[in-house]
């Protein structure tokens, strides 16, 4: 299925890297980068829906202002957003057990992935 990718990360380098890998993906339709989780939240509220297209969000956890957990809280408070064809992958450098456990509480999260992004990761997401 044609996929629109959103990457939310405060680190410019990971945004750039993610874009490079995703543009190599077989399912990629577009890649949008967000420095701030707050901006991504707005974009999700306003995004257009297509029957034959989906959205995949790569979400970093440790970010200033609104971190990954805060983003998920805000998202899950608006069930209407979750009805959209959207999948969320947490993509973080955290190998902290507490973070992994905490993420399991959020039903909106499809999978917990560790940085950095790889070609295999993109293939895996495209295939699922």
């Amino acid at each position: 299925m044609k996929t629109h990718f959103y990457i939310i990360d405060d680190d410019e380098l990971f945004l750039k890297l993610g874009k490079m890998y995703l543009e190599m993906g077989t399912c990629t339709s577009s890649v949008t980068l967000f420095n701030y989780a707050t901006e991504a939240l707005k974009a999700i509220e306003n995004m257009e829906e297509f029957l034959d297209q989906r959205y995949v969000v790569f979400l970093d956890l440790n970010m200033p202002i609104l971190n990954g957990f805060g983003f998920l809280e805000a998202l899950e408070k608006k069930p209407i957003l979750l009805q959209k064809n959207i999948q969320i992958y947490v993509l973080t450098s955290s190998i902290n057990h507490d973070d992994i456990e905490r993420i399991k509480q959020y039903k909106s999260v499809t999978e917990y992935l560790n940085k950095p992004m790889t070609r295999e990761m993109v293939q895996h997401v495209c295939a699922s």
């Binding site: 380098l13 490079m20 890998y21 440790n62 450098s93 955290s94 940085k115 950095p116 790889t118």
Partner: peptide, 28 residues
């Protein structure tokens, strides 16, 4: 585990790009 790993992981990510792209990313 976070701030130290981030630059390392970014470098690993850059180095795993296809060879032609890696050269361009060396300064980064």
């Amino acid at each position: 585990t976070h701030d130290f790993r981030a630059p390392l992981l970014a470098s690993i990510g850059l180095l795993q790009l296809p060879e032609s792209m890696v050269l361009e990313e060396l300064p980064e």
